[in-house]
Simulated assay, not measured.
Amino acid sequence: MSGKEAGVQAILRQKDKKAFYFHCSSHKLNLVVNDLKVIPEIRNSDGTIKEIIKFFRESVLRRKLIANIPKLSETRWSEKYKSIRVFKDHFVDLVDALKTLAEDRNGATRKSAHQMHTAA
Rank of each mutant, 00 (worst) to 15 (best):
K82Y: 09
G107V: 06
S78E: 10
Q14G: 09
F55K: 05
V8N: 07
I66N: 03
A67K: 15
A19I: 15
L36F: 12
Q9A: 09
M1V: 13
Q14N: 10
S59N: 08
R57I: 05
S78N: 10
C24D: 14
I84S: 03
A97E: 03
K54Q: 03
T100C: 02
M1D: 12
R43Q: 10
C24Q: 08
K17L: 09
L36N: 06
H117K: 08
E5R: 15
A120I: 15
R13Q: 15
V60I: 14
I42W: 07
A10P: 07
L101W: 11
S26W: 02
K50M: 00
I84A: 07
H114S: 15
C24R: 13
T100R: 14
V95W: 05
K4I: 11
H114L: 11
K64H: 11
V8M: 14
C24W: 01
M116C: 03
G3Q: 07
R105M: 08
H117Y: 14
D16P: 02
V33A: 12
R76I: 10
K15I: 01
S112F: 01
H114K: 13
D16I: 08
D104I: 03
V38R: 02
T118P: 04
L101T: 01
L29F: 13
I11T: 08
W77D: 06
I49T: 01
I53V: 15
V60K: 14
C24T: 15
K99S: 09
V38E: 12
F91T: 10
A120V: 13
H23D: 03
V60W: 12
I84G: 02
V32M: 04
A6S: 12
Q9E: 15
I69T: 10
K111S: 06
E79I: 01
I49A: 07
K17D: 13
Q115Y: 03
D35W: 11
E103N: 09
L101V: 04
W77I: 15
L72N: 08
S2R: 11
Q14D: 14
L61W: 13
A113P: 01
V33H: 05
G107R: 02
D16S: 12
S83T: 13
N68W: 08
R13C: 09
V60C: 04
L72E: 03
S112V: 01
Y81G: 00
R62A: 10
L61S: 11
